[in-house]
Measured scan of single mutants.
Amino acid sequence: GSPLAQQIKNIHSFIHQAKAAGRMDEVRTLQENLHQLMHEYFQQ
């Protein structure tokens, strides 16, 4: 897949890990990143 698709997959797993660790501030930051990446992805 594209590097962007790979990045989106990575962030999904980072979010999963951050949630499991209870780091909600990190989850929020990652979700904002994910949102931006998704936006770029669909602009392609």
Rank of each mutant, 00 (worst) to 15 (best):
R23Q: 06
S13I: 14
R28V: 07
T29L: 12
L37Y: 02
A21S: 06
H35A: 12
N10V: 12
I8L: 04
L34V: 02
H39K: 13
G22N: 06
E40R: 06
I15T: 00
F42I: 09
H12G: 04
Q17C: 15
E26T: 06
G22A: 03
R28K: 11
H35P: 00
Q43V: 08
A18E: 03
E32G: 05
Y41F: 11
Q31G: 04
M38N: 02
L30V: 01
Q36E: 09
Q7T: 07
Q44L: 11
E26G: 02
E32R: 10
H35M: 11
I15K: 00
Q36I: 11
Q36N: 10
S2D: 12
A20C: 13
Q43C: 15
E26D: 08
R23G: 02
E40K: 08
Q44F: 09
F14D: 14
F14Q: 15
A18D: 00
H39W: 08
A5I: 14
G1C: 11
E32N: 09
N10P: 01
G22Y: 01
G22I: 02
A21H: 06
H39R: 12
H12V: 14
Q7N: 04
R28F: 05
Q6A: 07
H39Y: 08
A5R: 08
M38V: 10
G1L: 13
F42V: 07
Q44I: 11
M24P: 05
A5M: 13
E26F: 05
I8E: 00
S2Y: 10
Q44C: 15
K9P: 00
Q44K: 10
Q43N: 11
Q43Y: 07
F42H: 10
T29W: 10
M24I: 09
N10A: 13
S2N: 13
E40Q: 10
P3T: 15
S2F: 12
Q43P: 08
V27K: 01
F42S: 06
M38R: 03
A20F: 01
T29F: 10
R28D: 04
Q44T: 12
Q43E: 12
V27C: 05
A21Q: 09
A18T: 02
T29K: 14
M24V: 07
G22P: 00
N10M: 14
L34E: 01
Q6N: 06
T29Q: 13
R23V: 02
E40C: 14
Q17A: 13
R28T: 06
E32A: 10
P3N: 15
Q7L: 14
E40D: 09
I15E: 00
Q31V: 13
F42E: 09
K9M: 08
A5G: 08
M38L: 14
H16Q: 15
E40A: 06
I15H: 00
G22H: 05
N33L: 15
L30P: 00
L37D: 00
Q36K: 13
A20E: 11
L30H: 04
F42Y: 11
I8M: 04
V27D: 01
F42L: 10
E40W: 07
Q7M: 13
E32T: 07
Y41M: 06
A20P: 01
D25G: 06
T29D: 08
K9H: 07
T29M: 13
F14K: 15
R23I: 02
R23Y: 05
Y41K: 03
L37C: 04
A20K: 12
Q6E: 14
H35T: 08
M24F: 12
L30S: 01
Q31S: 09
Q17Y: 04
A20Q: 11
P3K: 14
M24Q: 07
A20M: 08
F42Q: 09
N33A: 15
P3Q: 14
G22Q: 04
V27Q: 02
R28S: 05
R23L: 09
V27R: 01
Q43G: 12
K9Y: 03
L37R: 02
